[in-house]
Simulated scan of single mutants.
Amino acid sequence: MGRQEGRRTMADVVLVINSGSRRDSEWLDELTDELQADLREIRGLAVRRATAAAGDGMKSGALEQVGQLVASGGAIGTMAWAIRDIVIKFLDRTRAGSVTVKNGDREVTIARPSDGQVDKIVDQLRDLLHDE
């Protein structure tokens, strides 16, 4: 039997991108494409756009969920470090707000530190490393 589009298996995880202060759907769509390409670098991980069934009054079929990806793989749990590293680099590079990784009713949110937090860390490092 084939798997129906839009259904997740137990090995699937959903990644939800929070675009941060920018709210336009075009930019979120670009972010989604970029994270999808980054995650495809992980050997054995399949990544696709999340889909949902069309609601009443809409054309039949599946709707693409902007800002959401579904990742699956035989040993996805062993890929946690690689996924984390890619998401952190993605957040830093794109300035997106966060990415939430969901598996059933459990989730983890990886947030990019704010510019103020980064500046504070730099100031603390300067104080720590200052020669007197």
Results as ranks from 00 to 15, higher is better:
residue 21 S to C: 08
residue 65 Q to E: 13
residue 35 L to F: 02
residue 99 V to A: 04
residue 5 E to A: 02
residue 43 R to H: 02
residue 71 A to C: 15
residue 65 Q to M: 09
residue 97 G to I: 01
residue 1 M to N: 10
residue 108 V to C: 07
residue 96 A to H: 01
residue 98 S to K: 04
residue 54 A to T: 14
residue 54 A to I: 07
residue 80 A to Y: 11
residue 37 A to D: 05
residue 67 G to F: 02
residue 104 G to E: 03
residue 21 S to A: 10
residue 63 L to D: 07
residue 11 A to N: 10
residue 94 T to N: 04
residue 128 L to R: 14
residue 123 D to Y: 08
residue 102 K to Y: 11
residue 43 R to E: 15
residue 55 G to W: 02
residue 9 T to L: 08
residue 107 E to M: 10
residue 90 F to A: 06
residue 126 R to V: 15
residue 116 G to R: 13
residue 18 N to M: 06
residue 30 E to D: 15
residue 47 V to D: 02
residue 15 L to H: 04
residue 22 R to Q: 12
residue 89 K to G: 13
residue 115 D to K: 12
residue 56 D to H: 07
residue 67 G to L: 07
residue 118 V to E: 13
residue 118 V to R: 13
residue 114 S to W: 09
residue 28 L to Q: 05
residue 97 G to R: 05
residue 127 D to N: 14
residue 61 G to P: 02
residue 4 Q to A: 09
residue 61 G to I: 02
residue 121 I to T: 14
residue 53 A to L: 12
residue 79 M to E: 09
residue 45 L to K: 03
residue 92 D to K: 06
residue 9 T to F: 01
residue 100 T to E: 13
residue 3 R to Y: 02
residue 107 E to D: 14
residue 122 V to N: 09
residue 129 L to E: 11
residue 114 S to L: 11
residue 122 V to C: 08
residue 23 R to P: 06
residue 89 K to T: 15
residue 96 A to F: 04
residue 81 W to M: 12
residue 35 L to E: 03
residue 99 V to H: 03
residue 70 V to R: 03
residue 73 G to A: 02
residue 91 L to W: 05
residue 78 T to C: 07
residue 116 G to E: 15
residue 62 A to K: 09
residue 71 A to G: 15
residue 118 V to Q: 09
residue 104 G to D: 02
residue 58 M to N: 07
residue 85 D to F: 07
residue 85 D to V: 01
residue 2 G to L: 08
residue 8 R to Y: 10
residue 75 A to V: 10
residue 92 D to C: 05
residue 64 E to W: 00
residue 11 A to C: 06
residue 16 V to F: 00
residue 9 T to P: 04
residue 118 V to N: 08
residue 56 D to T: 08
residue 7 R to K: 08
residue 49 R to M: 12
residue 14 V to A: 02
residue 92 D to N: 08
residue 55 G to N: 07
residue 120 K to Y: 13
residue 94 T to F: 01
residue 107 E to I: 06
residue 35 L to W: 01
residue 52 A to F: 03
residue 79 M to L: 13
residue 2 G to V: 11
residue 117 Q to C: 09
residue 52 A to P: 05
residue 58 M to P: 00
residue 78 T to F: 15
residue 60 S to W: 08
residue 62 A to P: 03
residue 44 G to M: 03
residue 60 S to L: 10
residue 33 D to S: 02
residue 56 D to E: 12
residue 56 D to Q: 09
residue 103 N to P: 04
residue 34 E to A: 04
residue 35 L to A: 02
residue 51 T to M: 03
residue 55 G to D: 10
residue 46 A to S: 14
residue 32 T to V: 03
residue 31 L to M: 03
residue 118 V to P: 07
residue 99 V to K: 05
residue 42 I to N: 06
residue 45 L to P: 04
residue 120 K to R: 15
residue 39 L to N: 00
residue 94 T to Q: 03
residue 113 P to C: 07
residue 64 E to S: 06
residue 23 R to G: 08
residue 108 V to P: 05
residue 89 K to S: 14
residue 123 D to N: 14
residue 95 R to M: 10
residue 65 Q to N: 08
residue 48 R to T: 15
residue 3 R to T: 05
residue 46 A to R: 04
residue 128 L to W: 09
residue 60 S to D: 13
residue 32 T to R: 01
residue 33 D to E: 12
residue 122 V to F: 12
residue 104 G to M: 00
residue 82 A to D: 15
residue 77 G to I: 06
residue 73 G to K: 03
residue 122 V to T: 13
residue 43 R to S: 10
residue 116 G to Y: 14
residue 45 L to E: 06
residue 130 H to C: 11
residue 26 E to F: 06
